[in-house]
Structures are given as structure tokens and as C-alpha cells.
């Protein structure tokens, strides 16, 4: 294996493109090193992107924030602006692994690892975040929903790297929330998860919403029917039931050591309902932000 530190995104992309064997990008390494240790991944080239100028920065942009691909989640959680604007994304990012893992892991890495259970991905999808991808042919922006392709797979080619993720500006009276279910209180992979991002009008009626589920399908699911179920409502019980039903209908999970199909399906609905309420409260500016951590 070779290890190189890239000084620019294009240099990283070039090196990845030129490597005839298997190559991997190293940001936080919390998934990569585990895979290497398990012996099911033999890597010929590791490109450390942490030394690319700007890649560890969080910068305001167009009313939102651009988060560098190598910003560790612990750093992200210390950013007052992002915390204030995107509490659901922050709580999702904050749930990735232990304190130690938080010191290294990144939301870009969480996305690129391709796990259907990645915590930050549903929250980023609900937020409609935009991913900036650099490759040998330059840079382009991709909706976050278009990156995952299935378990362990993304739509990126081997020479492409994510350099940053843009959390967009948001209207007034907006709120987001993320909840996941794990058997313990920490240290587990999500068995099911739900992110809700919504905007209210002055009367408290939902005018826009995005609902995304994790760990219930080969990749993150944006549930448009669930969003429809709450748009135009004030999250009355009937609306929440419709939301949960839409979420359950969108699930296509597997039975495995972490959960059953029935459990994942039912829990996704429960979590979506609970997350919607938290997001709603946040949108109303309520202090009642019952984060799961």
C-alpha cells in the first residue's frame, strides 16, 4: 500500500485516476481503517485529503454553510452557526460513533462509505444538501440524494472525491430533526432512522417538508408521500399517522443481526413521527428540542 497526502483536490483526483489498483480516500478513516483491519479490503493507494487547503473549513455561503469534506464531526458540532441553522443535521452527525470517532469522522466520509444506515445521510437528504465533487474533469455539484447507490456503493467514480457539502439557506420558521433507533444508547449502527425537515407558515401550517429514512432500504429513501402527508397540516394526529404509514410503505428493509423487517418498518414510522414533532417544535422556535442525545 502507498500513502500520499494530497495538496489539492485535483492532485488527489489525479492520483486516484492513475492508480491501477484499488484506491481509497482517507478523511477521518473511521470506516476505511476498520475495513482494512477486517482484511476484506486490500488497498493499493490511500490518498489523505486532510491537507488540501480549505477542506477542513466551514464557511457561510448563500445563507447556508459549506462544510469541507475533512471537517471532523466534533468540529462541526462546535460550529454555532450550523448548530443553530441545521440542528437535525448536527444531531445526525453527532450520532456517528463514539466521542473518539467524532474526533475523526466526517459527514462526507459517512456519505461516501455508502452504508444504508449512515446517520448523517438522511438528515442531509432531508436538508437537500448539495455535494461538491472534484474529479480530473473539474468540479460539479450533485444533490446528496444522488450519491448513494446501494450498500457500500456510490455513484462517484474512482477518481472523484467529495470536497465539500453545502447546507443551503432556509426560510424562516424552519426546523429539522433526526432520530435513529439503536439497541443501546450509543455505539451501534442505526437499525432504522428518520430525518424530517420542514417549514411552517405564520399559522403553524407545514408548507414544505422533506422526509428521509435510513437503514430501511439499500440506500437512503426520500419519502415524498410522507412529506405530502404533513404539508398543509399542523401535524395533527391524523397527519402524523399518515406520515408514519407513508414511511412504512416506503421501507424495503432486510432481516439481519441488527433488526427484522417488521421491526425496521414499524420503527421507521415511529421515528418519522417523533422527528416530525421535534422539527415542528424547532420550526416554531420552541425550546422543546428533544434530541436523542
Amino acid at each position: 500500500m502507498r500513502y500520499m497526502t494530497a495538496q489539492s483536490a485535483s492532485a488527489a483526483a489525479m492520483a486516484l485516476a492513475e492508480e491501477p489498483g484499488k484506491s481509497r480516500v482517507l478523511a477521518g478513516g473511521t470506516d476505511l481503517l476498520v475495513q482494512m483491519k477486517a482484511g476484506n479490503l486490500t488497498v493499493d493507494l490511500v490518498v489523505d485529503i486532510k491537507h488540501i487547503p480549505g477542506i477542513r473549513d466551514i464557511v457561510p455561503e448563500a445563507g447556508g454553510f459549506r462544510i469541507g469534506a475533512a471537517v471532523a464531526n466534533a468540529e462541526l458540532r462546535e460550529h454555532a452557526g450550523v448548530c443553530q441553522q441545521w440542528p437535525g443535521v448536527i444531531e445526525a452527525a453527532g450520532l456517528i460513533g463514539s466521542t473518539q470517532v467524532q474526533g475523526r469522522s466526517t459527514i462526507a466520509g459517512n456519505l461516501c462509505n455508502g452504508s444504508p444506515a449512515a446517520d448523517s445521510v438522511p438528515a442531509l437528504v432531508a436538508a437537500d444538501a448539495v455535494v461538491r465533487v472534484a474529479g480530473p474533469d473539474g468540479t460539479h455539484d450533485v444533490p446528496v440524494l444522488d450519491i448513494p447507490a446501494g450498500p457500500g456503493k456510490t455513484t462517484l467514480n474512482k477518481a472523484q472525491i467529495v470536497t465539500s457539502i453545502l447546507l443551503p439557506a432556509r426560510p424562516a420558521r424552519s426546523g429539522d430533526a433526526y432520530l435513529r433507533f439503536i439497541p443501546r444508547t450509543e455505539m451501534d449502527i442505526a437499525v432504522a432512522s428518520a430525518a424530517v425537515n420542514l417549514t411552517l407558515d405564520a399559522t403553524g401550517t407545514v408548507t414544505a417538508a422533506r422526509v428521509a429514512l435510513g437503514a430501511v432500504a439499500p440506500k437512503v429513501v426520500l419519502v415524498e408521500a410522507a412529506a405530502k402527508a404533513i404539508i398543509g397540516t399542523k401535524l395533527e394526529d391524523a397527519a402524523l399517522s399518515a406520515l408514519a404509514q407513508a414511511c412504512e410503505a416506503a421501507c424495503n428493509p432486510i432481516d439481519d443481526k441488527r433488526g427484522t423487517i417488521a421491526f425496521r418498518t414499524s420503527t421507521a414510522g415511529v421515528l418519522a413521527r417523533r422527528a416530525a414533532k421535534i422539527a415542528y417544535d424547532r420550526a416554531q422556535g420552541s425550546a422543546n428540542a428533544g434530541a436523542s442525545k
Binding site: 478513516g29 481503517l33 476498520v34 471532523a72 466521542t99 473518539q100 474526533g103 475523526r104 455505539m187
Partner: peptide, 29 residues
Amino acid sequence: CGTGDCGACSVTLNGRLVCSCLVLGAEAQ
């Protein structure tokens, strides 16, 4: 564990708490 699940290898790297099993020696440069 060698996989970041137990914390027994905790150290700090540039002031951040990390599992040293999930850091490459090369990154210590």
C-alpha cells in the same frame, strides 16, 4: 478491538480525542 469500538487505545491527536487504532501512523507526521 482494533475497530474503534472499545476506546482502550484512546489518545489525543492535535488535541482531539481519537482511537489510535483508527489513525494511520503516517498521519502522525
